[in-house]
Design a protein around this nucleic acid. Structure first.
Length: 567
RNA sequence: CGGGACGUGGCGCAGUUUGGUAGCGCACAUGACUGGGGGUCAUGUGGUCGCCGGUUCAAAUCCGGCCGUCCCGACCA
């Protein structure tokens, strides 16, 4: 590929609309251009990166005996009504009508179409298991597209779907996909974690998200450094370790005038925040419900909203109503003799000699102990809080670390969710009609391209891993066309490389060296060969690998050297 | 959708407060010089200032409406 006849519109300035590394560098390096909100054109270099990611995806997915199909992007609304998702999906689903005023939508995912394909064409358990996938364009009318191609509305995704006669078979494919995804992300040289997560609108059975660790990720991931435990923070279980210490203090009611916050309480009574307890009041089905947490912990609203009798979505009770039910202001509530039902976080349940509100304005209790001062039912002990850095991992492997991650993949066991609503059945070995079990497996291709840059870049440009770089080597000819020696040498190297099947971007433009170097940095191809008059006097060229290697190599040795390094 | 910001040649921006005939840098074209990290000089091309309406002798600037884009939140590959 010659630079002079392709389109690589690099940018000197940082585009005004771009904030994060991947967005800035994809724009500046001439990989993408924005068309509209959440809509991007992939330019020649960008397409090469995508194609290479797709090639890796195909290789690894094909190994699982999955087979590639290609389904329509525009889909009949009828199918979506059948699965009930015409309503459930909400405005994310871009709907439209054709000239006959029939409903259609742009596909955000393909469960309906694949299930329809399956039910019309597969009738016997003997044809199972069966896994089909595609690499195709999706459209989700995101509430807020952002970060360039990391959260765009139109994007390319690998989506796979498997069909099974029993759970054992489904589980085998689910594990195979887990392995395949791990292989793909490893080949992309990414630091990633497979994490526990919520299923969202697709299905809430067993599922696993794949996250590329990066500070710009939209999710927080809690993981163990020594085991494979990892969980999306929105799901991560908070556990409490240790037994309850024996009570050593006596229950005392102390005056705490005007103290309404935990920080104020800590200061006023000079107690460690870990020994303080706060009580939040939320709306319940029959009456308000108290949620008792340690002072330094944060309520996990999703967990709380799922508790029996708690209203979802979680709603805090108004202060005036709190006084009506509890008899004091929100800064003095505590579990001891609380007049409404309450739940206690696991970390609070193991506390002894703690401090909490006295359910009376301007008073708190110190030296509080469960069962001596207030009975604690085991059913009331629940996981209510967000995990924090250093919490014990639920698998007992040690402290948790928390990092942000970019969700690039998600695998689910769907069970019969779609086969039931859409009546996808096969005959089993007894001749009875049964709903098939399904799994689905998504992997964001365009998002991966951005995620790679988020993890692999420095101040001056992307550092593409060799397997997905837009080319393997960037050949820079300096001072063309003035120096015929340089032109001849560069042309010769270009031909040699091309003959060897090496992918090369050949900068044959009549540009100043500085321009060529700057562009090469912005493009980020891992190997670079620079040919200039200065080196040619000694019959050498410059050979470079990313930022860590830069040596002079003799002209006739440079191609063999590169071939050797490429393996 | 709630909160915030922005919209002026291809890109990045100034000008808007205080209305008066649209400017800078880069890019682009031509020429000269230069030639290993976005070089210099000269000449030149390119904008109905997001759109519609209003106020005014006069609107990029003031007023109203609309559209678009970005950032923070709820949602997701």
């Amino acid at each position: 590929m010659k630079f002079s006849n392709t389109l690589i519109p690099t940018l000197r300035d940082i585009p005004a609309n771009a904030e994060i590394a991947s967005h800035i560098l994809l724009l500046r390096g001439g990989f993408i251009r924005q068309l509209g909100s959440g809509l991007y054109t992939w330019l020649p270099l960008g397409v090469r990166v995508l194609q290479k990611i797709e090639r890796i995806v195909r290789e690894e997915i094909n190994k699982t005996d999955a087979h590639e199909v290609l389904m329509p992007f525009v889909q009949p609304g009828e199918l979506w009504k059948e699965s009930d998702r015409w309503e459930v999906m909400g405005p994310d689903l871009l709907r439209m009508q054709d000239r006959h005023e029939n409903d259609y939508c742009l596909s955000p995912t393909h469960e309906e179409v694949i299930t329809d394909l399956f039910r019309k064409n597969v009738k016997s358990y003997r044809q199972l298991p069966c896994t089909l996938y595609q690499i195709a364009t999706k459209f989700r009318d995101e509430i807020r597209p952002r970060f360039g191609v990391l959260r765009s509305r139109e994007f390319i995704m690998k989506d796979g779907y498997s069909f099974h006669i029993d759970e054992k078979s489904l589980h085998a494919t689910y594990l195979a996909m887990h392995d395949a995804y791990s292989s793909i992300l490893s080949r992309l040289a990414l630091d990633f974690r497979s994490v526990e997560a919520h299923g969202g609108v697709i299905g809430d059975d067993e599922n696993r998200e794949f996250h590329v660790l990066a500070d710009t990720g939209e999710d927080a991931i809690a993981y163990s450094k020594v085991s494979s435990y990892a969980s999306n923070l929105e799901k991560a279980e908070a556990v409490a370790t240790g037994d309850v210490a024996t009570a050593s203090e006596t229950l005392t009611k102390v005056s705490t005038p005007n103290i309404r916050t935990i920080n104020g309480l800590v200061e006023c009574l000079d107690v460690p925040i870990e020994r303080t307890v706060k009580t939040l009041i939320v709306q319940g089905r029959d009456s308000p419900i108290g949620l008792v947490l340690r002072g330094d912990h944060e309520l996990h609203e999703i967990k709380a909203a799922r508790l029996p009798n708690v209203l979802s979505p979680l709603t805090f009770t108004k202060e005036s109503e709190v006084r009506h039910h509890v008899g004091c202001n929100v800064g003095s509530i505590g579990p001891v003799q609380l007049q409404i039902p309450y739940y206690v976080d696991r970390s609070v349940a193991v506390l002894s000699d703690f401090v909490c509100g006295a359910n009376e304005d301007d008073f708190h209790l110190t030296g509080v102990n469960w069962n001596r001062d207030e009975s604690l039912q085991s059913a009331a002990i629940q996981d209510l809080r967000k995990v924090v850095e250093g919490d014990p991992a639920p698998d007992g492997s040690g402290p948790l670390s928390i990092q942000r991650g970019i969700e690039v993949g998600h695998i689910f066991k769907l069970g019969t969710k779609y086969s039931h609503t859409m009546n996808a059945t096969v005959l089993d070995e007894r001749g009875e009609s049964v709903n098939v079990l399904m799994g689905c497996y998504g992997l964001g291709v365009t998002r991966l391209a951005a995620a790679v840059i988020e993890q692999k870049h420095d101040e001056i440009g992307p550092l593409w891993p060799l397997e997905i770089a837009p080319a393997q080597v960037h050949l820079v000819a300096l001072n063309v066309p003035r120096s015929s020696e340089v032109v001849n040498a560069a042309n010769h190297v270009y031909e040699q490389l091309t003959t060897q099947g090496i992918e090369v971007l050949y900068d044959d433009r009549n540009e100043r060296p500085g321009v060529k170097f700057a562009d090469a940095d912005l493009i980020g191809i891992p190997y670079r060969i620079t040919i200039g008059e200065r080196g040619l006097k000694e019959n050498t060229v410059e050979y470079q690998h990313q930022r860590e290697l830069k040596v002079d190599v003799s002209l006739d040795q440079v191609v063999p050297t590169l071939l050797q390094d490429l393996g």
